[in-house]
């Protein structure tokens, strides 16, 4: 029997008197993609940043691979963050170094974990650019010269180059044109499958979770109102709020 790769119990984060998210519990199994949906302000980003250790929750536990993440020394958590974890930001600029080349962006994590052979680092960067469909001859260009979709693919390459096991994504397709979104989703689906990634993906776009997520968690006002298998939740929503979401009555 396998154990969950990520286990979350009664997680809560408050901003003063306001609730960011509260009483969130779930298990993520190895190789599983969990989608978190809900309207704007429902606490999705707050939850994700607590899981990734960018914010400290006020209550609850987060267990990664049997280890208590919140009790971990910061050195250890930051080491995980650049090796076994990855975090894809909604805005590529937040996840990229805009001042250095695409190759350096991809190579940074390798150098951070101690790789010291330029030729190997560059070869890995070129290989990863290829995997996210960026031509080799762009390796020395800065991300500022890239389109939005390319920047997002570069951010993904930069995150996956060290072969992480657990990937957090916050609205990775948000703000992109519809056709660009479709291509990115295709790419993500392929990478998730090929690498056997465990993923927590936040989105307000039900088409994204329909395509990527095995399981869904629906959030409203900081709380989980419904969770289950993606098809089940989308085709037979139980909670009134989910029914509204699915029927697109809500402008999310």
């Amino acid at each position: 029997m396998t154990a969950p790769i990520l286990s979350v119990q009664h997680l809560e984060r408050r901003y003063g008197a306001r609730i960011g998210c509260t009483d969130v519990s779930f298990d993520l199994w190895p190789g599983e993609v969990l989608g978190i949906v809900g309207e704007s302000g429902s606490g999705k980003s707050t939850l994700l940043s607590c899981l990734a250790g960018h914010q400290r929750p006020d209550a609850g536990t987060v267990t990664y691979d049997g280890r208590d993440v919140l009790a971990m020394a910061e050195t250890e958590r930051r080491r995980l963050a650049r090796t076994e974890w990855a975090y894809v930001h909604q805005h590529a600029r937040d996840g990229l170094r805009m001042g250095v080349s695409a190759g350096a962006n991809v190579g940074e994590r390798l150098m951070a974990v101690g790789q010291r052979h330029y030729g190997d680092i560059r070869a890995a960067a070129v290989d990863w650019l290829d995997r996210v469909e960026i031509a080799e001859d762009r390796v020395d260009d800065r991300p500022s010269a890239f389109s939005g979709g390319m920047q997002q693919r570069l951010q993904i390459a930069r995150n996956l180059v060290t072969g992480p096991r657990l990937v957090f994504m916050d609205e990775p397709t948000g703000g992109l044109d519809v056709s660009v979104q479709a291509r990115l989703l295709d790419l993500l689906r392929g990478l998730v499958r090929d690498m056997g990634l465990s993923v927590v993906i936040v989105t307000h776009d039900l088409a994204v979770v329909r395509l990527l997520a095995d399981r869904l968690m629906v959030m409203k006002s900081g709380r989980v109102v419904e969770q289950g298998l993606t098809d089940q939740v989308l085709d037979d929503p139980q909670h009134a709020y989910t029914q509204l979401l699915v029927s697109s009555v809500l402008q999310v």
Partner: peptide, 18 residues
């Protein structure tokens, strides 16, 4: 504090690339 010095090599990488 945490001896996270990968960035120094990013600068050297850029040098060689350019």
């Amino acid at each position: 504090e945490l001896e996270e010095y990968g960035l120094m090599h990013v600068k050297l990488y850029e040098d060689i690339a350019r």
